[in-house]
Design a protein around this nucleic acid. Structure first.
Lengths: 125, 125
DNA sequence: GTACGGTCTGACATGCATGTCAGAGTCAAG
DNA sequence: CTTGACTCTGACATGCATGTCAGACCGTAC
């Protein structure tokens, strides 16, 4: 598929898909005319990239995980040692992050609940 | 307390504490000489700011929540309507975000577990 | 008073993810 | 052919959180 379609299917902008390639996160083939051609597997790759990126892993770092090292099956093994430690600390950080987000979530929940209570009237048609 | 101390107590850089003030998130008093003077309550305020910011709320937006509107007790009520809707959508987004992070967390867990298995030997002194 | 550490303001700089625009080529449908 | 939608590259721009540096002041300890 071409880049536009992949963009629609993944929800990632064309701009970013090109950027991902620039960073080595995907390796689309090229048509004679130079158009990028993606395989079905790339959809999954892109989604993993987005997920891990949201988790706070910089795109640059993902390069060593996704694409070459992470196979289509999901994950291949053997990462270099420094990367492993980065991952390990990220993993720990993630746990903290999740608990932080939970706190924020609760804070917002309380705040919003308070709003409802103190609303003059729902007034929503 | 002065800014340096608050920085140590909250883990937020002096630079950022000043920035927070710039954005109206804290209102330290000033000594005759112009030094910022923070109260004990500001520690909590700063921590809430950090938490909500980590949750993806921009500092600018927090201005309407923290400081004036969020009392020392944790939260005061009555936010303006547009802000409420921002918050509500952020709240929903947060739920999604948390579940995403869980996925990432699991992905990393699996990856790291695989590493251990395929390690030549722990070799850790 | 001298010095040293903390502070002040203001500006410049950086990293990262993203958007947008321009100029040129591609391609399928009519 | 011609047109319109899509793509390509490359550059410029933005938003946000942050860092760093300079030049000047404040204050306490000696």
């Amino acid at each position: 598929m071409k880049i536009g379609e992949l963009s629609k299917r993944t929800g990632v902008s064309v701009r970013m898909l090109r950027h991902y390639e620039e960073l080595g996160l995907v390796r689309p083939q090229r048509t004679a005319a130079g158009y990028r051609t993606y395989g079905a597997g790339d959809i999954g790759t892109i989604k993993r990239v987005v997920l891990l990126n949201k988790a706070g892993l910089e795109l640059r770092r993902l390069r060593h995980l996704i694409g070459c090292e992470l196979g289509d099956n999901g994950m291949r093994t053997q990462l270099c040692a420094p990367l492993q430690s980065v991952l390990a600390s990220k993993h720990a950080e993630l746990a903290r992050q999740i608990s932080d987000l939970r706190k924020s979530y609760k804070m917002l929940s309380r705040l919003l609940a308070a709003q409802e209570l103190s609303m003059p009237a729902p007034d929503r048609r």
